[in-house]
Design a protein around this nucleic acid. Structure first.
Length: 354
DNA sequence: AAATGCTGCAACCGCAAGGTT
DNA sequence: TAACCTTGCGGTTGCAGCATT
């Protein structure tokens, strides 16, 4: 429990890394693997503390890092997961495995937070800002309904969060069994450990990181969402020999289904257009998927249009989200919440998160 | 061309959790 | 059981580069 000793004693270097230092760190890890970060700098001939080396490796030198602009899907995923998880960047990063938690955090702080604020959505709570809500309203009933749904959302979110904590304990317990004899060379992402085949270790320049796509065209079921989550599968493989596997899967399944049910009920009431037929088990996923599919993308695209208008000097009239009236605003917010349900609903049943 | 302000990002810092001795 | 060690996480800072005045 104690504090780690201060690592900047004895004149250890701080600040930006030089190419030479990068090379030393890379060469050392390539040859010896990671080992202990604390002893690594001395062995590698670096005047850095282990913490600095670890950070440099995880955030910059790791071969399985994708750099550059975030795609629309990545943005969407970040915003949705942030709504669910808050500032748990490492958890969010597990759904964007080629991105580091630091990069996601930076991107959120510098881009997405501002964009949500501009849309009239509180980037912390993901709730519509009250003033915007009031000014944009076209009727008291919609306001009341919106606020009520926000409360329901918060309730469902808290419940999911509590379950996540509970079930992650089960999971970490199970994983302990598998970490006794890790085969090969382990590359650690900020929050998870990937075992990389020997040839990749030797190459270190190119790593065939599992392609992970998110089900933008989700039909609602994990099988049809087109989601390939090899990192999650890796964990399931690791769990495979665990006696807790069944419990874990069952727990995750229950968690997802309960949370989804809560959100589903909420969304149905928001949409207002649901029929008993649409609520039959076979139809629920399809309907949810269809409705959700459009919402978030539209929201982002609308905002992108706003931005381009704004960039070309045609600033919108000041209404949040570029909407001209309250009904549009209401629709935008409804879509926003729906999109979050979409993410939850399209998460694979074997996702490490759900 | 210089000064100033803004933005984005790499890196640092402190804390907490979990493991080890 | 307590002290210590290691690692991971999230918040924050500092600086380089770009835009604006």
């Amino acid at each position: 429990m104690g504090r780690s000793p201060c690592c900047d004693k004895l004149g250890l270097k701080k600040g930006p890394w030089t190419p030479e230092e990068d090379q030393k760190l890379l060469a050392y890890i390539e040859e010896h693997g990671r080992g202990s970060w604390r002893s690594l700098p001395a062995k590698a001939g670096l005047q850095r503390c282990g913490k600095s080396c670890r950070l440099r490796w995880t955030n910059y030198l790791r071969p399985d890092i994708k750099r550059g602009k975030f795609s629309l899907q990545e943005e969407q995923t970040i915003i949705q997961l942030h709504a669910l998880l808050g500032n748990r960047w490492s958890a969010i990063a597990t759904h964007l495995p080629k991105r580091t938690d630091n990069e996601i955090k930076n991107y959120w702080n510098t881009h997405l937070k501002k964009r949500l604020a501009k849309m009239g959505i509180d980037p912390i709570t993901h709730k519509p800002k009250n003033d915007a809500l009031l000014s944009a309203a076209d009727g008291q009933s919609k306001n009341a309904a919106n606020l009520s749904h926000m409360a329901q959302w918060e309730s469902a979110r808290l419940e999911a969060e509590a379950r996540l904590v509970r079930e992650s304990k089960i999971r970490s317990h199970s994983l302990q069994h598998q970490q006794l004899n890790p085969p090969g060379f382990a590359l650690e992402s900020p929050t998870s450990t990937l075992t990389v085949p020997e040839p990749i270790v030797q190459g270190l320049g190119v790593s065939p990181m599992p392609m992970i796509e998110f089900g933008g065209t989700s039909s609602g079921s994990s099988e049809t969402a087109g989601v390939v989550k090899e990192e999650g599968e890796q964990e399931w493989k690791e769990l495979g020999s665990s006696s807790n596997l069944a419990d874990y899967k069952e727990g995750m399944g229950n968690s997802l289904s309960s949370f989804t049910s809560s959100l589903l009920a909420m969304t149905i009431s928001m949409d207002g257009g649901w029929t008993p037929e649409s609520l039959r088990p076979n139809n629920i996923n399809d309907n949810v998927g269809t409705i959700m599919e459009e919402g978030f993308t539209n929201l982002l695209l609308n905002d992108s249009m706003d931005r381009s208008l704004s960039d070309s000097g045609k600033e919108s009239d000041g209404n949040s989200g570029g909407s001209g009236d309250g009904s549009d605003y209401y629709e935008d917010n409804k879509n926003y919440w729906n999109s979050i349900l979409n993410l939850v609903n399209s998460s694979p049943s074997d996702s490490p998160m759900f």
